[in-house]
Amino acid sequence: MRKLCLLLGTLSLINSCTPVTEPSSSDFEWQGHRGARGAFPENTIPAFLFALDEGMNTLEMDVVVSSDEKLVVSHEPFFNREICNVNFVDGGLPDTLGVGNNIYQWTYEDVSHVDCGSLPNSKFPDQKKIPAVKPLLEDVIDTAEVYAKANKLPAPNYNIEIKSRPEWDNLYHPEIEEYASLLVELLKNKDVLSRTVIQSFDKRPLQFLHKEYPKIKLALLVEDDISAKDHISDLGFEPEIYSCYFPLVNQDLVNYCHEKGMRIIPWTVNTKEEISQLRAMGVDGVITDYPQLKREVTTSEND
Rank of each mutant, 00 (worst) to 15 (best):
L49Y: 04
L59N: 13
A47Q: 06
C84I: 10
L71S: 02
D62M: 01
H75K: 09
P46K: 09
V89T: 15
F78R: 02
S74I: 00
V72K: 01
C84G: 10
E69R: 13
C84P: 07
V89K: 13
N85P: 02
V73K: 01
D53A: 09
F50C: 12
S66I: 03
D68S: 07
N57F: 01
N57Q: 14
D53M: 10
P77R: 04
N43D: 06
S67L: 12
D62Q: 01
S74M: 01
I83R: 09
T58D: 12
I83E: 06
V64K: 01
E42Y: 06
L59K: 07
A51D: 09
S74H: 00
A39G: 06
E82H: 14
P77E: 06
V64S: 02
N80F: 06
V86G: 04
V89W: 12
E82I: 06
T44D: 04
D90G: 10
D68I: 02
D68W: 02
N80Y: 08
S66M: 04
A47D: 05
V73A: 04
E60F: 13
L49S: 05
N85F: 12
G55W: 11
R81E: 15
V73F: 04
V64F: 02
C84Y: 11
V65L: 09
H75D: 12
F78L: 07
E76C: 09
M61P: 06
V86H: 11
P41E: 12
P41F: 14
M56Q: 13
E54G: 01
A51N: 10
F50D: 04
F88G: 05
E60P: 12
A51H: 04
L59D: 09
F79I: 14
M56N: 13
L49I: 11
D53S: 11
D53H: 15
V86K: 05
R81C: 11
V73M: 05
S67Q: 11
R81N: 14
N80W: 09
N57Y: 02
T44N: 08
A39Y: 10
E82N: 14
C84R: 07
I45R: 04
V72W: 00
V73E: 02
F88Q: 15
L52H: 11
P77K: 01
E42H: 05
S74A: 12
E54N: 15
V86D: 05
F78D: 01
N87C: 10
T58P: 10
V65M: 10
S66D: 03
I83C: 04
F78P: 00
M56I: 08
D53E: 10
F88S: 15
A39K: 08
L59T: 07
P41N: 14
